[in-house]
Design a protein around this nucleic acid. Structure first.
Lengths: 351, 351
DNA sequence: TTGATTTATTGGAACGTTCCATTTAATAGG
DNA sequence: CCTATTAAATGGAACGTTCCAATAAATCAA
């Protein structure tokens, strides 16, 4: 317990019989100090139990080496995975990033951003909360703090963005479904306040158009981006007079919900109704049936984002190029075998 | 861009025509300042785009209001959930906690702890990495920083701990299995370098003993605490001459693995082999079949931990009582119906 | 009026670093 | 030997806050 007044650089100086400047230099690993002196100082540091006061240092340096990762939803394995990718990069750069969760709340995000600024962050990687207002990052911008967005973008913003190629991914997935013989397709989940949503939906539409699916045969169901949302989408879709036979889901969580709901109804995912997810989270591979999904290289995008912000900090700029990451469809079991003229057994299939 | 030298309290003072002390008081919401003066100052703050420099403030106050949450594995939904519980509490206390991930590496943890100390944290909630050495937290202790452990404890440490009642949970689960008619039981997954492991295994053994299961009929399989670990455990268990008919799993991830492996082998979880998980993560309810698991009130424990550390900070102590959280078994489908003399077919629900 | 009290405001000395400009010691060149 | 040069160590002035003690202005008691 005890621990009287915290030891400072001066205490070490006294202990080691040198000046505070010398101690400071040792702390910074300067080559100006004679090795044996450095050793003496380091010993004193150890003896006294000194802990470096970064706040004081930053006061002088204005160069804080703190990097923040602001994540919209840490309980979502997808974002957690991305966060871990970033962390890897920061770690190997010798930086301990601070992670903050906004729980998808713009208000909370505001608080977090404020706190981070007060702490003097050197840079930020942000996956913005849904409903973030365009002005939310102005303070950061005027303060000249490098920021990069990852996974999500804001409608009108000059902040660089690292995202997967959502349009292409959705296109590929949709094409796959059509190739399997489906002619009446749905897009499940997601809400239109996310730019990503429009990108993915755009890819879906483009593919439908390219392969001659009539506008009346492509159904869009907005919904929560969660299992629950997926369940709801499937329910309302199957309640239609002429239900779809396949769905591209906004993300894997929605797809899992759909798979679940199918089972509950006694339908066989894949055979009776084809499902494709998006993001290819770790769980997709282990699901029952294994989920066909668009892999976006989650951790890789995180790493990329981290690299970009590092580079920005280093070159003292607040601008950088956007990066659109490659995607690919990984085909598993959730779309079943190819579909013949008329659906196989099971229940109500295409008209 | 631009943003010449950062604005300080003095710039605002000049702008508002008052002294820096006045500005400082306004920032702290002091009632000593005339409301109209305060207003004038606040306007200047807004105009200049000032951001508070907490580092400078802390230098003077030595009272940092930064709290850290050190998590062993953020990609594990269980810990993520716990983290979110803590966050909730800190948020309503007006504090933005910083989360750091150690990825189950003691080395990484060391770095994180060091960084946090340098940042001048006021307190810490830690779920220690596996293999943490007893001395890892000595620096924190001698510095007098309040620390509380959550979910995991260290073999010999005076740091307060918030955990679920692992022994009781395992006991309940095992009793349930025995009540279902199982007489040859296994404990799957986990490794003995975790105190939790011994607690849970202890509960398992105690129940076996209490209900007269012969020592030869309780099998222990160490293994990774992941899906993969669960799969492996089941494989080796079923390869035995007299395999068990039910298993208590170290945690839900292991249980999911077991469920998966059963399916792969064409066995029906519940009917052919009963499975109980531990932790009751959100996914347990939605699995196929829904997993019977020991609910530990994850988020609640997180909240509790946060409260404790807050109290410790406030009362300037480094000691607090341990807290053992209540647990309860939530019965779903993964143990099937009661077991007759010889396992029955079908997969009806619990009797 | 005078002094005492209250209310608002302010200067200045910390806080623990960094880093520039110096000083001191050691080495080399002649 | 003296003077340059290099190497090693040092003092002191920042950095942007807080907070104590002091002041100034306003109110009150006589």
């Amino acid at each position: 317990m005890a621990s009287r007044a915290k030891a400072t650089i001066l205490d070490i100086a006294r202990e080691a019989g040198v000046s505070k400047s010398t101690v400071s230099l040792v702390l910074q690993g300067s080559r100006l100090i004679r090795p044996e002196t450095a050793l003496k100082v380091r010993k004193a540091i150890e003896d006294v139990g000194y802990v470096y006061n970064r706040g004081a240092a930053n006061l002088r340096k204005a160069h804080s080496n703190v990097i923040g990762m602001v994540i919209n939803d840490l309980t979502n394995p997808f974002f957690a995975e991305m966060a871990v990718g970033m962390e890897r990069v920061f770690q190997s750069a010798g930086i301990v990033p601070f992670i903050a969760n906004t729980a998808e709340s713009p208000v909370r995000q505001e608080e977090v951003l404020k706190s981070l600024m007060e702490q003097g962050v050197a840079g930020l990687v942000v996956s913005p909360a849904r409903g973030t207002t365009p002005g939310a990052f102005r303070r950061l911008e005027t303060a000249g703090v490098p920021v990069v967005f990852v996974m999500r973008r804001l409608p009108e913003s000059r902040i660089p963005v690292i995202t997967p190629d959502n349009h292409r991914g959705a296109y590929l997935a949709t094409a796959h479904l059509i190739g399997k013989g489906h002619r009446r397709l749905a897009f499940f989940g997601g809400s239109s306040d996310l730019v990503v949503y429009h990108e993915r939906l755009g890819g879906f539409r483009a593919a439908c158009e390219a392969f001659g699916i009539a506008p009346a045969d492509r159904l869009v169901f907005e919904g929560e981006t969660s299992r629950k949302g997926g369940i709801a989408c499937l329910e309302t879709a199957l309640a239609m007079a002429a239900p779809p036979t396949a769905a591209l889901c906004f993300n894997d969580a929605v797809a899992f919900g759909v798979l679940l709901a199918l089972r509950k109804r006694g339908l066989e995912p894949g055979a009776d109704f084809a499902v494709v997810g998006f993001d290819d989270v770790a769980e997709a591979e282990h699901y029952m049936p294994a989920l066909t999904s668009v892999a976006v290289n989650t951790a890789g995008l995180g790493e990329r984002a981290a690299h970009v912000v590092l580079k920005m900090i280093q070159s003292r700029t607040t601008r950088a190029e956007d990066h659109i990451g490659a995607v690919n469809l990984v085909v598993r079991e959730s779309c079943g075998p190819d579909r013949k003229e008329h659906g196989c057994a099971g229940m109500g299939d295409a008209a």
